[in-house]
Each structure stands twice: as structure tokens, then as C-alpha cells.
């Protein structure tokens, strides 16, 4: 298998180099998206299929769409620049040397293995039974280290608020005639399927690869598809329901943590019998929030509406 790994590694490095050195910004973006997909592939090989899913959906997919949309909104030729190659001048040479040295050191460091195995990881696997879910990653995310996840929801929300403050939505192709083209039909066909997959991923997160993030990402992807095919679009107005859904993930998380203190006596500890239902509730609200947030991050607008609505 090392040969495949080596090939993957080589491709990753080549794509990364291309991403940095391509003169055209578009080419760089494309290289980046491809790199993301390859990365996801490599993660599958590294026994992290759920992460691969997330990377493909969010890191490559959503981000790729966003990058492309942003590229389109820039004036033509904007962002095209010639990055000096390592041998073209003193500074690039020095930087190259530095980066190379650093990379070599990092490689060596990544090969250093300590005597003892990872304590936290072992502890996580040990206590999986008490976590309410079978999937270790989900257990870590939603229970062992739920606090991190909660805060992460805050990050997402604030990135969204910041984006909305800028009031610069992605440009839309107004010429694109809605529902007439093949993609639209395709979208109509695939949309329920995608939605289903998304929901399933959320549900399945408790047992197998998948979870709120992946599910949310897929749901967001569905939304993006709808917009791309002209079924929906960003709206300048927002409503409290939407806002409640956006904040929902973090809110449920917080409330669950706070309200259960008297019951469990510890913070973010769930009563023994209720662990699973609570986890599921949290997971779904998280997924919804994530999906909507990512979608709005994509549109850059505070609200959503069906195409043509006022």
C-alpha cells in the first residue's frame, strides 16, 4: 500500500505546489479543490472515512464553490500574479530553504513515536460505553469534548455574523434561466436524495461514520445546489425563526449544559438514562444550524427565499 500512499503524497504535493505557483487565480482554486478531494481520499485510506466525508463536503465542496464564486465576483484578472520561483531571487530562495528545512523537521517529528500510547485516546475508547453513542468520534465531539464543539458553534455563528455585516453576497447569474436547464432537472431529481443522505448521516453519526458535521455539510450542499439551479436565492431580510435555527445548535447545547447542572451535579454531564435522546437532540439541532450557517455563509445574505419571491 505504500506505493499508493506515495503516489497520493506526490500528487498532494504537486497540487499544493500548483495551487501556490499557478499564475491564474482560477487555476490555483481548481488545484485547491482537487487537492481537497485527494486529501479526502487519503483520509479514507487512513481509517478516517467520516473525516474524509467532511473534508469532501466542506473543505473541498463548499469552500470550493465559495472560492469560485468569489473569483467570479472579482474583476477579471484580479488575483492573477506570478509567484517567484525559489531560484528567482534571494528572498524566494531563503524562504524556500526555510520552508524546506521546516518541512523536513516536521517530517522527522511526525516520525517520532513516544514510548507510551495516547492516554486520552485510550481513555476515550475505554469510556465509550458511558458516552451514549457508539461512534468514538461522535462521542468525543458531543460528549467527552462537547465543550469544544459548543465553542466551535460559536465560531461558526460569529463568522456568519461577520460575513453578514459585510453585505457582499455572492454574485448571481441573472441571465441563467431558471428551471429550464438540465442541472435544474437533475437538482430536482437528486435533491430529495441528498436531503435523505444528509439526514441519515446525522442519524448514523451515533453508530458509524457520519455525524452532525457531515450531515450538516451535506444538507448545506443541497441548499447550494438549490440556489445554483435557481430554485432559491439569498434574501436581504431575515426572520427570527431562521435566526433561532442558526443559533439553535449552540443554544440547545448551552441550555442542556446549564439546565442539567442541578440534575447531574456536573456541567455538561447528562443523566444516565437520557444520554442518548439528548445526544440525538443536540445532534440534529447542530446539524441544522451547521447546514443553515454554511448556506448563508455561501450566499452572504441574512435570509433565504424561493426564487422570485419578494
Amino acid at each position: 500500500m505504500t506505493a499508493l500512499d506515495s503516489l497520493l503524497a506526490l500528487l498532494l504535493l504537486l497540487l499544493a505546489a500548483r495551487c501556490v505557483s499557478a499564475r491564474s487565480l482560477l487555476q490555483a482554486i481548481v488545484a485547491f479543490i482537487v487537492l481537497g478531494l485527494l486529501l479526502a481520499l487519503s483520509w479514507v485510506r487512513l481509517e478516517a472515512p467520516d473525516l474524509a466525508l467532511a473534508e469532501a463536503a466542506i473543505g473541498a465542496g463548499l469552500l470550493g464553490v465559495l472560492l469560485l464564486g468569489t473569483w467570479r465576483s472579482l474583476p477579471l484578472g484580479h488575483g492573477n500574479e506570478r509567484i517567484p520561483l525559489p531560484w528567482q531571487g534571494l528572498r524566494p530562495a531563503l524562504i524556500t530553504t526555510g520552508c524546506t528545512v521546516l518541512a523536513v523537521l516536521l517530517t522527522v517529528a511526525l516520525h517520532q513515536h513516544p514510548e507510551q500510547a495516547a492516554m486520552s485516546g485510550l481513555a476515550a475508547l475505554d469510556q465509550l460505553d458511558a458516552a451514549g453513542v457508539d461512534q468514538p468520534v461522535t462521542a468525543v465531539l458531543l460528549n467527552f469534548r462537547a465543550y469544544d464543539t459548543l465553542l466551535e458553534m460559536g465560531v461558526l455563528l460569529m463568522a456568519l455574523i461577520g460575513t453578514l455585516m459585510l453585505d457582499s453576497p455572492l454574485p448571481r447569474d441573472t441571465e441563467l434561466p431558471a428551471r429550464t436547464m438540465l442541472p435544474a432537472t437533475l437538482a430536482q431529481l437528486f435533491l430529495p436524495l441528498i436531503l435523505l443522505i444528509g439526514l441519515y448521516l446525522v442519524w448514523a453519526g451515533a453508530y458509524s461514520p457520519g455525524g452532525a458535521f457531515q450531515g450538516g455539510a451535506v444538507l448545506a450542499g443541497a441548499g447550494v445546489l438549490l440556489i445554483l439551479t435557481g430554485f432559491g436565492e439569498g434574501d436581504g431580510r431575515d426572520g427570527w425563526v431562521l435566526r433561532a435555527l442558526l443559533a439553535g445548535g449552540a443554544l440547545v447545547f448551552t441550555l442542556a449544559g446549564l439546565l442539567l447542572i442541578p440534575v447531574t451535579g456536573a456541567f455538561m454531564a447528562y443523566p444516565q438514562g437520557l444520554v442518548t435522546p439528548i445526544m440525538v437532540l443536540i445532534e440534529f439541532s447542530l446539524a441544522l444550524s451547521i447546514a443553515l450557517s454554511l448556506l448563508l455563509l455561501y450566499t452572504g445574505t441574512p435570509g433565504l427565499r424561493r426564487r422570485g419571491e419578494r
Binding site: R91, C99, L105
Partner: peptide, 12 residues
Amino acid sequence: AVAIIAMVLLLL
């Protein structure tokens, strides 16, 4: 930005 690399190496 360059200083970042330099600083990491120096600190190391």
C-alpha cells in the same frame, strides 16, 4: 510572514 518561518527555526 518570513519572520514566522525564521522565528520557528530560531526558537527550535
